[in-house]
Amino acid sequence: MESIINGISQPLSNWWAGFREDFINNFITDNRWLFLWRGLLCTLQITFFAAIIGIVIGFFVALVRTTNIYTGKLRFLNGICKLYTTVIRGTPVVTQLLIIYYVIFATVNIEKTLAAIVAFGINSGAYVAEIVRSGIMSIDRGQIEAGRSLGFSYVKTMWYIVMPQAFKNILPALANEFIALLKETSVSGYIATQDLAKAGDIIQSRTYSAYMPLIAVALIYLVLVVGLTACVNRLERRLGRSDNR
């Protein structure tokens, strides 16, 4: 009996001892957890500001494109917006990042994080634009006509009547885009940004163990995404009040 228990508990405690040692070595020694912490802050910073740029560009492009569809105006601007979405959606984000850093900002000494923010913001804008455009187009033309017939200008009709409804419809798709953005920033290590994914690599290069840093990085991304999803779900429920029958 005793030998059976020993047979199980011996490897288990061996494993535990190894795990403990690994953990200390990867995260505690030399305060290596600080790499992860700084990496997390860097990732959040890039994601947050890139998302803001993405929203601004995305809504602008979507409004230009729908205005062109509804009124036939802004033809030149519409052409530029179309070109923008085509190019951005047609090329890999890593390539865009490298071009922004090594080509466009080649001659100026720009902070790497800032280059990443710009690159991911411009990239995200193209996707946000298509999401917002689909949201606006999903609103019945009758809503615009009702707004206009009450004396609202086209812009005010968009602002007070179309956008609030469109926003509610596109919220899940937007959340999806920002979750994707958050994870996509993990390639910003290509320009040596010290983001969360890069932090894992740095620890790995010091400790020569792959398992711990990678799992830690994965867990942190997971927690971020789950948190973001929970926030969006709450917002969705609040905006869904008018659907009650």
Partner: peptide, 16 residues
């Protein structure tokens, strides 16, 4: 248009 009210076949109330 402020002085011309319009009523539509499909009501077009603002659902939100």
């Amino acid at each position: 248009r402020r002085k011309m009210g319009m009523v539509f076949q499909h009501f077009n109330l603002f659902p939100h």
